[in-house]
Nucleic acid binder design. Structure first.
Lengths: 110, 110
DNA sequence: GAAGCTACTTCGCAATGCGAGGTAGTGTCA
DNA sequence: TGACACTACCTCGCATTGCGAAGTAGCTTC
């Protein structure tokens, strides 16, 4: 079972979540996700997601030149982004508990 | 946030799960899933998933004529299917708890 | 000056859920 | 009888989205 497919629709949520407390740039967000346990996330997925979320008006962005490497394109949640984070979070929780119940009732897996 | 995207990769697991205790035919499986809380699942998705699972060698199938309507194409788990169900179940539980932790740490949603 | 890490981008593919449409059998009810 | 509705299945093609591959570029270290 591919974790790739499980990520569909959830990566948005995950990216919004790791941006909640602190703005971040792509490469850094990638690291945060992997540290959080999503180790198989590809970099192209993150950059693509950021672009989509930005185009959807959920993120602000600004470029910061770095003294120790290439420039960094920072992203941060705006009001709409925070809103979406909450909504997506609830959707996820609901969905996950539906699935858990479905599995529990049939005694699937540990 | 689309539940459609959340279903990706999980529908396989859900279908395997509802077949664990009792064989079923497409239309019936659709009802089981909807009853279990996955109300937005489309019929085409279920039929497609069944075909894929069958082609992957995880299901047995046999046709039973019905006296109260069209014939029914039953599907049931075989050994490989039960195996896959357990593996996919564990993958899901792991993934879900990773996501939950990620959200919890940042105090997202209820 | 070759590696290797940081940092971002573009391209096109693969997987999969779904809507739309079609085919049939059965039952109901005016 | 004829219209409708429910059961039951199938096919086609689209939309979304995560990803691999490849490329560009700056910086540090050996």
């Amino acid at each position: 079972m591919d974790t790739t497919q499980l990520l569909k629709g959830v990566l948005d949520l995950a990216v919004l979540a790791v941006l909640k407390d602190e703005d971040g740039y792509g490469y850094d967000i990638l690291r945060r996700l992997r540290t959080a346990g999503l180790e198989e996330v590809g970099d192209a997925s993150v950059y693509g997601t950021l672009r989509r979320l930005f185009q959807a008006g959920l993120l602000n962005t600004y470029v910061v030149p770095s003294e120790e490497g290439p420039h960094r394109k920072y992203y941060g949640l705006n009001a709409a982004g925070r809103d979406q984070l909450n909504r997506a979070g609830k959707t996820w929780r609901g969905f996950a508990s539906t699935m858990d119940a479905l599995l529990d009732e049939r005694g699937v897996a540990a």
